[in-house]
Simulated assay, not measured.
Amino acid sequence: MQFSLKFKDIDEKRDLNENYTIRDLLDELELSAQTVVAKQNGELTIEESVINDGDEINLVQIIYGG
């Protein structure tokens, strides 16, 4: 089982563990939900969402301005 990950220069297939969530992915990449927004199959999603076989996960960097 695999899913696709797209983030900045990353565009790869990753192996998928059972009950693997967006939060697990962010922790693995050492990213915070305060700095990125996750899209699962083109739709905004929450950290608790489970990633399924064949899903496409796109992480979008949040830009703060002032």
Rank of each mutant, 00 (worst) to 15 (best):
E47G: 07
V50A: 04
N19L: 03
E48T: 12
E12M: 11
T21Q: 05
L44A: 12
E12Y: 02
I62D: 00
D9L: 11
G65Y: 06
D15I: 14
F3E: 02
N17M: 14
G54E: 04
E30R: 15
K13A: 08
N41K: 08
L5Q: 07
I46F: 14
N19H: 10
L25K: 04
L31N: 03
G54I: 03
I46D: 10
L25D: 01
S49W: 00
K8E: 15
G54W: 04
D24M: 03
F7D: 00
Y64L: 14
E28S: 15
G54D: 06
N52T: 05
E28W: 13
Y20E: 12
S49Q: 09
E43P: 00
D15Q: 13
L25P: 00
N19P: 00
I51M: 10
N19G: 01
R14T: 07
V36E: 04
T45P: 02
N41L: 08
Q34S: 15
S4C: 08
K39Q: 13
T35P: 01
G42D: 01
Q61G: 03
D9M: 05
N19D: 12
S32F: 07
L44T: 08
L59N: 03
L44H: 09
E43L: 07
E47F: 00
E28M: 06
Y64F: 13
D55P: 03
K6H: 01
I22V: 15
L26G: 01
Q40E: 05
Q2I: 13
D27S: 12
I22T: 09
R14H: 09
T35M: 12
L5P: 06
T45K: 04
L16N: 09
D9V: 08
S4M: 04
E30A: 15
D15R: 13
S49R: 04
G42K: 06
E30D: 07
Q40S: 03
D15G: 15
V36L: 05
N52Q: 14
E47V: 07
R23E: 12
S4W: 09
K13G: 04
S4E: 12
Y20D: 05
E47T: 13
E28A: 14
S4G: 11
I46S: 12
I62E: 01
T45Q: 02
I46R: 13
I46E: 13
N19A: 09
E56T: 12
E48D: 12
L25Y: 11
K6V: 04
E30W: 02
L31G: 04
V36T: 07
N58D: 09
N17V: 11
E30T: 14
V50L: 14
V60L: 13
N19K: 12
K8A: 13
D27L: 14
A33W: 00
A33K: 02
M1T: 09
Q2R: 14
L25C: 06
K13R: 13
Y20Q: 08
L25Q: 07
G54V: 03
T45A: 11
L5W: 04
T35K: 15
T21H: 03
E18M: 02
L5H: 01
G65N: 10
I22Q: 08
V50M: 07
D27E: 11
M1E: 12
L59R: 05
N58V: 09
Q2N: 15
L26D: 01
V60H: 02
N41D: 09
F7Q: 00
V60M: 12
R14P: 06
S32K: 10
D9A: 14
S32A: 10
E48M: 02
E43A: 07
G54S: 05
I62V: 15
K39E: 11
I51A: 08
E43S: 08
S32G: 08
A33T: 11
